[in-house]
Amino acid sequence: MDLDITQLRSLIEMLTELDVAEFEHESEGRRVKVVRGARVAVGGPAFYAPSGGAAAPGPSPAAAAAPAVDDGSVDVTSPFVGTFYRSPSPDAPAFVEIGTVIRPGQTLCIVEAMKLMNEIEAEFSGTILEIYAQNGKAVEFGQKLFKIKKA
């Protein structure tokens, strides 16, 4: 038995309207659980609802490059909690600027955690469209660092 997407939508709309954080319902061996603000999970028979929004099943949960909305650009995200640096040392020029044309293997930035200097390299050719993170500031796991237009 498939999940009725229209029913699910109206259920979520109602829960949103009433500001219900979590809802769980079970009948005939089928369980529906909705947690607002996090994700939609469906248990019971083997059935997988896509969680939330854009992210299709990627190469891994920690994928550093996540497809953004379909304009041919991708976001590079931080692989862990740390401090974001745009240059190898305080008086050195930045690895990249907005508009820099990058090639695979080119260093984009350093994320430091526990004095481990982690160089994030480009996976593909493209152009830097946006630099989201600020030099010397803390970044979270999965936080967007760069927007890159794929060549």
């Binding site: 190469p59 891994s60 920690a62 994928a63 550093a64 490059a65 692989p79 695979p104 293997g105 526990m114 004095k115 481990l116 200097m117 982690n118 160089e119 994030i120 390299e121 480009a122 996976e123």
Partner: peptide
């Protein structure tokens, strides 16, 4: 995280660098 001290004085230093491509 990884300076080595003897009686409070530095005897060794460590610098770890890594390269991440995608995930």
């Amino acid at each position: 995280p990884n300076d080595v001290l003897v009686r409070g004085k530095k005897i060794a230093g460590v610098l770890v660098e890594s390269t991440v491509v995608g995930s």
